[in-house]
Simulated assay, not measured.
Amino acid sequence: MKVCRAGGATSIALVGVVALSASAAATPPEGDVERTDLAKGDTTSAVSITSADGQPTTLLVQQLVMHPGSSSGWHTHPGPEHSVITTGTVELQTAGDCAVVPYGAGQSVFIPAGVAHRVANGTPHDAGVVATYTVPAGAPVRADSPDVCGK
């Protein structure tokens, strides 16, 4: 886990950088601000988030620990899911081609709204995942789905 602190000398350095930039309109941090990166991962998948007609949405971030042999079961989400594998390896299966695809620490996964999928840990070690969901406000984050791949 990476923790970033902005304060003291860092704030002074940031003030100097901002002062040198004529086009900078932002203000520098003040006081003691801590930021904690929960996860960071790379993907080559196309990613988009759309809110229909400006309706309110809920953003939910969850940290998951998947113990050996665990599975999410087949399910869907009413909005997109962006996940980063933080430790170990998980296997993702989606309703398109049913292939079991492994993802390891540092990789990210994007699952569009409504796509049935299953995540499992078939290794003898825990796997960590940070999942971010964007769903319509008031909607359940998850709905169970039938096994669309016969596994």
Rank of each mutant, 00 (worst) to 15 (best):
G16H: 01
G16L: 02
V17P: 00
V17K: 02
V18P: 00
V18D: 06
V18Y: 02
V18L: 06
A19E: 00
A19N: 01
A19L: 02
S21C: 08
S21W: 06
S21P: 05
A22H: 04
A22P: 03
A22M: 04
A22F: 04
A22S: 06
S23R: 11
A24T: 13
A24M: 14
A24W: 12
A25H: 06
A25F: 04
A25T: 14
A25I: 10
A25W: 05
A25M: 06
A25R: 08
A25V: 10
A26E: 04
A26Q: 05
A26V: 09
T27C: 10
T27H: 12
T27A: 15
T27L: 10
P28L: 00
P28N: 04
P28M: 01
P28I: 04
P28G: 05
P28C: 06
P29H: 12
P29M: 12
E30W: 09
E30T: 15
E30F: 10
E30S: 15
G31D: 05
G31S: 01
G31K: 00
G31M: 01
D32A: 12
D32Y: 09
D32M: 07
D32I: 09
D32V: 08
V33L: 15
V33G: 10
E34Y: 12
E34Q: 12
E34M: 13
E34V: 11
E34D: 13
E34F: 11
R35L: 15
R35H: 13
R35T: 14
R35I: 13
R35N: 13
T36C: 07
D37M: 11
D37T: 12
D37C: 11
L38F: 01
L38Y: 03
L38S: 00
L38R: 02
L38P: 00
L38D: 02
A39N: 04
A39H: 02
K40C: 10
K40D: 12
K40Y: 11
K40N: 08
G41A: 04
G41R: 03
G41M: 00
G41D: 01
D42A: 08
D42R: 09
D42C: 06
D42V: 08
D42M: 07
T43L: 03
T43K: 03
T43D: 03
T44A: 14
T44G: 14
T44L: 10
T44R: 09
S45E: 15
S45P: 08
S45T: 10
S45L: 12
S45H: 13
S45G: 10
A46V: 10
A46R: 06
A46G: 09
A46Y: 09
A46P: 06
V47C: 09
S48G: 09
S48M: 11
S48D: 13
S48W: 10
I49M: 13
I49F: 14
I49A: 14
I49Y: 15
T50W: 11
T50K: 12
S51A: 15
S51N: 11
A52Q: 13
A52C: 08
D53P: 01
D53T: 05
D53S: 03
D53V: 05
G54I: 06
G54R: 04
G54W: 05
G54L: 01
G54E: 07
G54S: 06
G54P: 02
Q55E: 15
P56D: 02
P56E: 04
T57Q: 08
T57G: 11
T57R: 03
T58H: 01
L59H: 04
L59T: 08
L59S: 05
L60K: 01
L60D: 06
L60R: 04
